[in-house]
Amino acid sequence: MNPAISSLLFYIFALAALVSAIGVVSLRNPVSSALSLALCFGFVAAIFFNMGATFLGITQIIVYAGAILVLFLFIIMMLDVKNEEHATGNLGYAVVGVIVAGMLAGMISSASLQLPGATDGRCPWHAFTDAFCEQLSVDSCSKGNPVPQGDIQAPAPYGGSLPALNPEEQGSDAKLLGENLFSYYNLTFVILGFALLAGCVGAVSIGRRLRRD
């Protein structure tokens, strides 16, 4: 895709995702919150599509928007949760929240700084402005590094060539993911699988004990 359009779409979807994420925490009705979370998942999936990671995007919709969130909604409706009471301020919660959010932000930023183009001026915004300058052929724009198309490689753990920038490899998105998941990340994958299984068994055992009472 044209880098300019791609970047523009990225900013639109990212903004929409942020707005709906704010809606999740600010809306008073729990059902509205849940639906705005569904919207947020949809926009994140759109960002994935925009990057050429179609399989990841569709998985995002199937798993999160289509299944997990519906279960949330199910529970909210079953328990008939009323509108949230006036929020109670608690310093302890705030401190813990800030720490957890900070750790998450640190993880995400450190991971994204390792991506190609993160530090040498090839981030989406630069790609957008460069392409924009080329289109208008305005020389007064200070051009950063122009985007060399077709040969940008992510580091091996991130899956080799980037489908968004190498259009001829776009078909292999699911394959790429599968190969990485079952070779490089195989151990992690198995451990996570066992963790999920343990969670399932635990939930079933708790549910059975409650029923016997």
Binding site: F55, I62, A65, G66, Q170
Partner: peptide, 17 residues
């Protein structure tokens, strides 16, 4: 699309809402 059946599962799964 290269994800044909998945697209149908995902989108028609949304009708549960």
């Amino acid at each position: 699309l290269n994800i044909g059946p998945l697209w149908i599962f995902a989108v028609s799964g949304l009708s549960v809402y």
